[in-house]
Design a protein around this nucleic acid. Sequence first.
DNA 1: AACGCGGGGCG
DNA 2: CGCCCAGCGTT
Length: 336
Amino acid sequence: MSGIGKKIISWYAEQGRELSWRETKDPYKIWIAETILQQTRIQQGIQYYYRFMERFPDVVMLAEAEQDEVLKYWEGLGYYSRARNLHAAARQLVEDFGGNFPHHHDQLMLLKGVGPYTSRAISSFAFGQATGVLDGNVMRVMSRLLSDPSPINEQKTRKSWQLIIDDWVAGHDSRDFNHAMMDLGATICTPTNPGCLICPLMDGCKAYKEGTIGFLPQKKKLKRKVRYFQFVILYNEKDEIGIQKRPEKGLWGGLYEVPNREVSLHSWEKGEITKGLHFHHELKHVFTHFDMMIKVYEGPAAHWEGSPNIQFIPIDKISIFAFAKGVLKIFERMGF
DNA sequence: AACGCGGGGCG
DNA sequence: CGCCCAGCGTT
């Protein structure tokens, strides 16, 4: 597979994407962009990136912020542990690293929320270290170049291919090489209908030669479930609504919500609920790993139990707090 | 190794 | 409706 580097870098010089966080070598900017873009399309994340950088322009500003505000800037983006870890890692950087980013990926891995991909991305893009980055795009490109059916979501595959990509990047500008591989995956070597006929690597692509492009990459797939919930809009005597903060870990960790409980399908269908509350509407919220079926009830707070940390806020103060998309959808249906 | 963790866009 | 996206942490 020799000669890949030269071909792909010259393709990148002509056809690469122009993205603002590539115009800098500031590790902080690169770190924020890479974290926002984990499992997230550029289109979806780019506005979050600009807003986030405006409010938290450097690592000290981020370290000194309150977690609730960081989460507010992440509201609606999903995978909220990214925001919590970003905040924690900023404090790590200030306290343990003198506010400076280490250059090597092994050291960057010590930061919360920074894993194999992000550590190497910072190492390459900010400091020019000779390491290859493996994201979903690159894994797809490699699976086809090699015509290798190894499941790309298995650690074994990732470790093996890391050695290969590190070999390929050797002798080239790692910044350009890694960006080129990602851009090729994003624009030419796409999941469906790849542009093989205009691909600069067509000659050396084993899957193209063998006709296996359409079957690659392989992936072990995860199973999804359905879970049933009741959410309640509780009013006090001043017509304020009850909200509460979720635990730091787990689903929607650290965000605010309205009181709710998971129930059996039977109980959910029968509509078994505290006396005095009445049904308002039903909706489905889709996660990667399960479908959340929701029935929303409303009524006076007096009889509801099991929400010890509930606080009541006027409806026009909702926007101060960070809520996940599922809860925001409920607010919208309530007319708040 | 397997699972938990969000949300949006596209065929 | 299923798949995929600049992945990481926990168990």
